[in-house]
Design a protein around this nucleic acid. Structure first.
Lengths: 220, 220
DNA sequence: TAGATTGTTAATCGATTAACAATC
DNA sequence: TAGATTGTTAATCGATTAACAATC
């Protein structure tokens, strides 16, 4: 009754990704073991083991007393909850360096993301081969979205034109935007926007290095 | 006394970045106004205005009753706290598509990050021009780090070789690593690692689209 | 069985929000 | 001044941790 619309919190999604990540790595590396304990997972990510068990319980994974969790069950459940067991089609808009990197990155398929086209407004770029794709003119977006059932636009255009491109993408039927243009965007309610704040990483680096220096000076 | 080592939480850093971002944008857009209220900031980021005031107070910005906060004071304080008023030098390791995108991205200087070299292990790439830089052989890393006082390595190499490269970078004197290789890394205590989890963004997109579909089905 | 590990309830902690006095 | 906004204390909420019984 209550579970009808329980939305996983951002923090939980993030933790689940960490579990997925580390359990997957451990399996690859691991010498024949196919189970993992909550304590092991917790140590890898520097957190409490109780929380790991709670999180896993919340997505329906049951552990085995004295043994731990079966790695495949953990991975399977996370895949299911996060939707990695389905395929989502995406297009890249903006065939600059970052767009080209995104379009040619192979790691996305593992998460069910399939990049099926790349677009640019610049006529000089249209027709150019980029990995296994050929750059198409932005005007063709609606046709591709319709024809290939595309849901996601990966936005790698300059910030100045980002909002205009988003408006166009939305009118072309795009349902979600993965925003790599460093500017904020507006879109209708039904369009989901995920903004990738590269500068947050930068802030952490910068803040950390600054603090280190200050501490060094205090010690000196 | 207590303020000696107060470390800003990850969440606070992230909120500060949002404030910085939005207040900066508003200034650029704004028609002559040079103040901003906590309520305005809060609405932009969908949060409580009290928290905005608390956060700003915590980094030493004082507001003006009836008026709000002076935008320049807010920006200045955040720059100072996060260390954007200093310059940090970085090198890119791995001259693939992503590395090339990072090396040529102009937006970093705004945050005090200066990219001063790009490296690759592949002899075929060495010597190739990439924006205003020329790809150098990885062996030269230590000399560059020493000579140009480089602190940060932006890691854009394939995951298989990432750990090896990190070990080498650390031995060359690198103090912080911005990791874009999708694998976890180990480094000595004194080396700060920021792992950029691209897949977390993907998880959010995927989860959101999945939920939407389920809700659609329930309605139908 | 004994013992390791899970699962879950209760306690704690910290972060967020509400309330309201202080200020210009 | 009146009124809008800050600053801060107290109340609430949710997330994390501790404790421990249940399990194999």
């Amino acid at each position: 009754v209550k579970s009808k619309n329980k939305h996983l919190s951002h923090a939980l999604l993030e933790r689940l990704m960490h579990y997925y990540y580390f359990v997957g790595e451990q399996i690859l590396a691991g010498g024949g073991r196919d189970t993992v304990t909550s304590t092991e997972i917790a140590q890898l990510i520097h957190m409490d083991d109780t929380l790991v068990r709670k999180d896993l319980a919340s997505i329906g994974v049951r552990g085995y007393p004295r043994v731990g969790f079966k790695a495949t069950e953990v991975l399977e459940a996370i895949r299911r909850v996060l939707g990695f067991d389905r395929t989502y089609r995406a297009v890249v808009i903006g065939a600059g360096r970052l767009g080209s990197a995104m379009a040619s990155y192979r790691g996305f398929t593992k998460y069910g993301l399939e990049i099926c086209s790349i677009f640019d407004k610049d006529p000089a770029k249209v027709g150019v081969r980029m990995g296994h794709l050929v750059i198409q003119p932005l005007e063709d977006l609606a046709i591709v979205v319709e024809g290939k059932k595309v849901q996601i636009a990966i936005l790698t255009v300059p910030p100045e034109v980002a909002q205009k491109v988003v408006d166009f993408a939305v009118s072309s039927g795009i349902q979600a935007i993965w925003n790599f243009a460093s500017t904020s965007l507006k879109a209708p309610e039904h369009v989901f926007i995920r903004h990738e704040h590269i500068s947050i990483g930068l802030a952490e680096l910068s803040y950390h290095l600054k603090s280190e220096q200050r501490e060094d000076r205090q010690q000196a």
